[in-house]
């Protein structure tokens, strides 16, 4: 009998029992390596998405149409940077450094949300991102507030509060434009046309094609399936679009009384794969912007480290 293996099985059983009892897993506790790796992948991807997500919105920061809108957008982008920072710290509790995570992002090993590979072409896109993209993120993140890994769940609780504020602001931009001039209404509709389907793709593949889902559900990293979350988002968003008198670009979208949900058309997963695999308009620019900021900023970080070392040495000398 393999003693080590038995011990391992005991550990794993105890771990699963803890999860089944709805107890949170904390950083210093034993966890299966795959659980750790799954979380590192998911949480770092989440952190990267926050940081890369600053770019499409930053694209309009210098062109925001009023000072109030500029201030709101700036605060929102700052929040996102803060979420990134917070999530990197939470991921570090799993035994990976921020530098290692950056390296994975910059070499293409780690991903960020594909949605940010789409360009922000008009001011209405800033509204659509807040309304739809942040709206979808909230649906995902509310589910994650009950994630089994303590630091991630706590990060999500804090982040959700700010995200719901962002979503309201985005919707407010859309409302102003939808009630505005003919050109503004056209911009708002065009933004909805371009962002709707990519937003639905944010929830991931259909449940039947989702490779990692079953294990993640068992570990309670995930609490609801991709399709459940997607449906939740659609059900919440359709009335909001109707209120704006904007048309969601889906001919098959219809309320199903029997299901108590909206039916909707098929998602073009080839488009999703195409953009994920590098054929989005902004894939290269987004990544290059991050790499350039990091590489171009090395001398600044080096200087800060050198100064801190000098300061510490002087203090030691004086003592």
């Amino acid at each position: 009998m393999d003693v080590a293996k038995t011990d391992f099985n005991d550990l794993e059983e105890a771990f699963q029992a803890k999860i089944d009892a709805e107890k949170r897993i904390e950083p210093k506790e034993w966890m299966p390596d795959k659980y750790r790796q799954t979380l590192i992948r998911q949480m770092s991807q989440h952190a990267h998405s926050e940081v890369v997500g600053m770019l499409p919105e930053g694209n309009w920061l210098t062109r925001a149409p009023t000072l109030k809108r500029k201030a709101i957008l700036m605060a929102k982008i700052q929040d996102e940077g803060g979420h990134g920072l917070y999530l990197y710290s939470a991921t570090e509790t799993l035994g990976i450094s921020r530098d290692e995570m950056f390296d994975q992002l910059h070499t293409g090993k780690a991903k960020y949300s594909t949605i940010f590979n789409y360009p922000t072409l008009t001011w209405a896109d800033i509204g659509a991102i807040g309304w739809l993209v942040d709206g979808a993120a909230i649906v995902n993140q509310i589910a994650l507030c009950r994630c089994s890994y303590g630091p991630y769940a706590r990060a999500m609780i804090r982040i959700c509060k700010e995200e719901s504020f962002h979503q309201r602001q985005g919707y407010e931009i859309m409302m102003t434009m939808a009630q505005g001039t003919k050109e503004q209404r056209e911009m708002a509709q065009d933004a909805l046309n371009r962002w709707w389907w990519p937003t639905l793709m944010m929830f991931g593949p259909n449940d039947t094609n989702s490779a990692n889902s079953a294990q993640s559900m068992k570990w309670k990293i995930k609490r609801q399936s991709n399709d459940e979350l997607r449906q939740k988002f659609i059900d919440a968003t359709v009335p909001q679009a109707e209120y704006l008198k904007l048309r969601i670009p889906d001919d098959k979208l219809v309320w199903n009384e029997e299901r108590g949900h909206y039916d909707f058309g098929d998602i073009d997963w080839n488009e999703f794969k195409n953009v994920v695999s590098g054929n989005g308009l902004c894939n290269r620019e987004r990544l290059k912007a991050r790499v350039d900021a990091h590489d171009g900023g090395k001398w600044v970080r080096d200087a800060a480290l050198a100064y801190a070392a000098k300061k510490a040495a002087r203090k030691a000398e004086a003592a």
Binding site: M54, M74, A75, Q78, L85, A289, R290, A293, G297, R301
Partner: peptide, 25 residues
């Protein structure tokens, strides 16, 4: 605001937008 997303370290992305926000205010 032009620095947004391009600062040498994430903490500075936050600091520069924070200061910019104060100034716009």
């Amino acid at each position: 605001a032009e620095w947004c997303g391009h600062a040498p370290i994430l903490e500075e992305d936050l600091a520069l937008t924070n200061i910019g926000l104060d100034l716009i205010g």
